[in-house]
Nucleic acid binder design. Sequence first.
DNA 1: CGTTAGCACTCAATAGGAGGGAGTGCTAAC
DNA 2: GTTAGCACTCCCTCCTATTGAGTGCTAACG
Lengths: 347, 347
Amino acid sequence: MKMDTRKQQVLIAIIADFVATGEPVGSRTIARKYDLGVSPATIRNEMSDLEELGYIEQPHTSAGRIPSQQGYRYYVDFLMKKKALSSQEEDLIRRGYEKKVREIGQVITRTGALLSRMTRFPSMVVSPRPDVIYFKRIQLVLMNPGQVMVIMIMDTGALQTNIIEVSEGVGQVDLDTITEVLNAKLSGLSMDMIKMTLIREIYFELSKHRNILELAMHLIQSGLNREREDKIYLGGVINILNQPEFHNIEKVKTILSLLEQEDLLCNLMEAGSSGEGVSVRIGGELKREEVKDCSMVVASYHIDGKPVGSLGVLGPTRMDYAWVISVVECMTRNMSEAIERMYKGWR
Amino acid sequence: MKMDTRKQQVLIAIIADFVATGEPVGSRTIARKYDLGVSPATIRNEMSDLEELGYIEQPHTSAGRIPSQQGYRYYVDFLMKKKALSSQEEDLIRRGYEKKVREIGQVITRTGALLSRMTRFPSMVVSPRPDVIYFKRIQLVLMNPGQVMVIMIMDTGALQTNIIEVSEGVGQVDLDTITEVLNAKLSGLSMDMIKMTLIREIYFELSKHRNILELAMHLIQSGLNREREDKIYLGGVINILNQPEFHNIEKVKTILSLLEQEDLLCNLMEAGSSGEGVSVRIGGELKREEVKDCSMVVASYHIDGKPVGSLGVLGPTRMDYAWVISVVECMTRNMSEAIERMYKGWR
DNA sequence: CGTTAGCACTCAATAGGAGGGAGTGCTAAC
DNA sequence: GTTAGCACTCCCTCCTATTGAGTGCTAACG
C-alpha cells in the first residue's frame, strides 16, 4: 500500500484538527470540516490504511484517530506548508529587540522571555560556544592575602570569574604585571585559540619575571581551563501547565525535573542544533523517556554567519509545528541581528 | 469560654494527626491514638468548643476537624515544643558546608539546595543587603570606543557589572586614572556609605583631571546608584508538586507564577525577616491570595552578628512547624558560620 | 472497482442510585 | 463532668444503565 494524495489530505486534516482540539478525530468530523468531497465511509477506509502505515493510531477501539510520532514526522517532512507569521507577530518580535543592548546576557534573556511568551511553551536559549567568543581583557584582583579573583571579560560583554589560591606573598603589583602581559598577549583571541596555542608564548614572556611565573601559569590553568559552562536560559516553565495533556501531575513532575537539570537540557539542545535551519524532534526522537510526549523545535543563532548557540522550545507533540517553526526561525534571525548590532563596527 | 489544658492537648493532637495524614481528624481517632484518658464523646465536646473558639474547622458536616489558620497560629505561639534535629540531620547540614567556599554566591546556592532537599519544600535565599557589603575594588574596562564596563567587586566575592556609554574620546588611560582614584577612596567602605558621603570628596580629588571629571561622576551615578537588585536564590520548586494539597493544577499555577516574580518574593521574604529569630507566617498572614494555603518559615542569617539577608521555605500550611523551624534555624546558623569562615581573619 | 449507505458492535464517559462508613450532635444516664 | 447510645448528615465508592461517538463490515450503486 502506498501513500497517495487523498491519504495525505486526510492525514493533514487529522493533524490540523487534533492540534486544534486535542481530541481524537473521527471520520465524520473530517468529512464535515475538511472538504475532501467524499463520504465518511471513504475516509474511514483511508484512515484504516493510514493506521496500517503507522501514521495514525487509535487510543481505543471506539475513539477517533490521533497522529502517531511517525505521522507527525511525515507531516513535518513532507506535508507541512510554511506558515508566515502575521505582521503583528513579526512586530512583537521586532519590538522585543528595539531597546539597545550592550551585552549578550541581555540578548539571551530577552530572547527567551519573548519566545516563551509568544509560543506559550517553555523556552530555552543556550549561550554562545566559547570558541567564537573573543577574549577582551583579563583582570586579576587580590581579594585577600593568598586569594586572587580572576575576571575574564569577553567581547560579548560576558564575564567569567574564578577565585583561586596563590602563595601569600603575591601582591597586587605582581598581579598587575601578569595582567598586563596576559592582556597584551591574549586580547582579541578566541577562547579556544588561547587554550591551544599561546600558553608557550606567555611562558616565554614571563620568564623575565621568574618569581611570578609559576603563579601566572597557575592562573591560566585554573582561570581558562575551567570546564565549559554552558549557560542556559530557561523561561516560561509554567506554560507547560497550560497544556491540557500535562494536567497529570506525574507527567509534569518528570518534565520539570528534566528541565531542572541544565546539563541534560544543554545536551538535548545541542543534539538538535547541529544541522542547518530549524530542527524538529518529535517524541521518542528526543531519546528521553521523560519527554516522550514532547517535541523540541530548535535552531541556531549566528555571529558573523557562524552558528554559535541555539534557542528553541519544548512543547507537547501536539503543537502547531508550522507556526512554531516560523516563530523559532524568526527569533533566530532577530537574535542574530541584535547581536550583530551590538557588535556593530567594532569587531 | 476559655482555653484549658485539655483543649490544648486536643488541639495539639488534631494538628499532629492532620500534619501527619492530611486527612480531617475525628474524635475517635484522637481517643484511640492520643492517650488523653477520656472517651470520644468528651473529645467531641472539646472539639465543639475549639471550633467555637476558631482554632479548628470542619470541611463539611460529617467530616473530622482540621486546624484553622488561627489554630496553627496558637499552636506555633503557645503549644509547640521545640524539636531538636536528629544527629543525622545536623550532620547532613554540616556536611553541606564542609567544602571550602570563596564567594557568597556559592554559600547561597548551597544553602538553598540543602534547604529544599531537607524540607522537601521550595526554598529561598536572599542575598545580603548592600549596606553590609564592603566595597573591595572597582575596575573600568573600555569595551569599545564609547562603551565602558564598570565592574565592582565586593568583599563577599560578588560582582556587580554595568555597561555605560561615555564620550568616544575616552581611552583606557583615562579610565585607569579614575579607577585608581576610586579605588583609593572607596575601598573598604560599605556600599551605602559610598552613596551617602563620598561623592563630594571624589569630586574634589578628580578636579585635577578636569577632562575626565564629568565621566567619573557619570560612572558613579550609573555604576553605584543602580537600583538595588535583590538577588534571590530559588530551589527545589518541583517539591511543591509532592504536596498532596497541591495536586490541583490551578493552585500550582498560581503559586508557581508567584515564585517566578522575584521582586514579589523578595518583598515577602523581607517582610518576614524583620524580627529576631525564625518567623512563621501562616496562610492569610502572608497577605497574598496566591499563597493563602501556604506558610512561610523565614529567618535571617548574619555577618558580624548583624542580620543581612534571609532564607526560608514556602510550604503548605499543613507542615511540621516545629521541625521546619529547627531546620531553618540550623541553616541560618550554619550559613552564617560559613560566611564567617570565608571571611576568616581578613575583614 | 471505487464509493457510499446502512447497520451492528465497541467502548469511554456520564449520570443516577444504593450502600457503606466516618463523623457529628444531642440526650439521658452514670 | 463524663460517657454510652443513637439518629442524622454527608462524602465516597461502587454498580448499573444510558448515551454517543466512532469503527468495521457488507451489500448495493454508478
